[in-house]
């Protein structure tokens, strides 16, 4: 199978010591790969390097067999959406689309067809002659996606692609990415949306403090936490987290705002945790047990939650 993108011991450091370190990654045609990690884990930095927006400080990255990140032939085959939805604000969405379509080498007739198709898909066709400065953040994010799809790139690199999108737009995006994957486009998504990654992606890299803590097929990764359970408690007041953490059945505990997540080992009984809360159970407003997901795996491996409370 030809490799679209390959990174070996990729490192990108910043003066403050943060960055990504020694990352290995391969992307084959049709593959959907998620880069997951909490804020500051390095997933956006990694995506920027893979998208040629930043040069690696160490290691190598090759796109279609070349390591020259400034090679126009490489960039012509990449579609990149970074965290900032930057556009030429005084120009309309159509003008922005036209500029990028033509810069990426599309003939005027093809450009017109694809811009119309993309803007209609994104629900922006009616607002196509509106200056982008009048757009909401969600509309700008959609326009960024449209622009990235215009030249039918062979590799798509998307940073938090569902950020700012409503539910319908998110479903439309997932469907589109699945179709693109089936037609051979390699896709890398940086996200901390567990459900998006589990639903859409074939492979996942979990990043923590700039390093890959584990990677592999989603189903295989989930076997590491299969049989275990997550107990999620909504609390009014602080509870004895250390007491819970010290239980042998407990693999990890995280607290974020009023939510406490307790990762239970395979075969453990949630009642043992509840026993710790004996006498203070009135502090707990709701409690629920659910099957573990990639977020729980991350918590188990690193001891820190994958998502902020608001993102869960």
């Amino acid at each position: 199978m030809p490799v679209l993108l390959s990174a070996r011991r990729l490192t990108r450091t910043y003066p403050n010591g943060q960055g990504v370190f020694d990352v290995d990654l391969r992307l084959e045609p049709g593959e959907l790969v998620a880069l997951m990690g909490p804020n500051g884990s390095g997933k956006s930095t990694l995506l920027r390097v893979l998208g040629t927006a930043a040069a690696p400080s160490g290691g190598t990255v090759s796109w279609f067999g070349t390591t020259d990140l400034r090679d126009p032939a490489v960039r012509r085959r990449l579609g990149v959406v970074l965290d900032q939805a930057a556009h030429f604000e005084e120009m309309t969405a159509y003008q922005n689309g036209w500029f990028f379509a033509r810069q990426f080498g599309l003939e005027p007739r093809i450009a017109a067809e694809r811009i119309e198709d993309g803007l209609r898909w994104a629900g922006l066709w009616e607002a196509r002659h509106q200056p982008v400065r009048e757009y909401s953040l969600g509309m700008k994010r959609k326009l960024s996606l449209v622009e990235a799809f215009l030249h039918r790139p062979q590799i798509l690199l998307l940073d938090e692609p569902t950020l700012g999108l409503d539910y319908r737009a998110e479903l439309a995006l997932i469907e589109r990415l699945q179709v693109l994957s089936l037609t051979g486009t390699g896709i890398v998504i940086a996200t901390n949306d567990v459900h998006l990654a589990e639903r859409l992606c074939h492979r996942v890299l979990l990043l923590h403090q700039g390093r890959v803590v584990t990677e592999g097929r989603v189903a295989r990764l989930l076997t590491a936490v299969a049989g275990s359970k997550e107990l999620e408690l909504q609390i009014h007041s602080p509870i004895d987290l250390e007491g819970i953490r010290s239980l042998p059945e407990v693999e990890a505990v995280s607290a974020s705002g009023h939510t406490v997540s307790v990762m239970l080992a395979r075969g453990a009984n949630p009642a043992q945790v509840l026993a710790i809360l004996n006498g203070t159970s009135d502090l707990v407003s709701t409690m629920r047990v659910r099957q573990p997901n990639l977020g729980d795996l991350f918590l188990k491996l690193t001891g820190v939650p994958l998502q902020e409370e608001g993102a869960r």
Binding site: G51, R70, P72, A73, R75, L82, Q84, H87, F104
Partner: peptide, 15 residues
């Protein structure tokens, strides 16, 4: 500051 420099950087042309 607003991220347009990166958009220019990613165009398929030499800097």
């Amino acid at each position: 500051a607003i991220g347009l420099n990166v958009r220019y950087r990613l165009l398929p042309r030499r800097p």
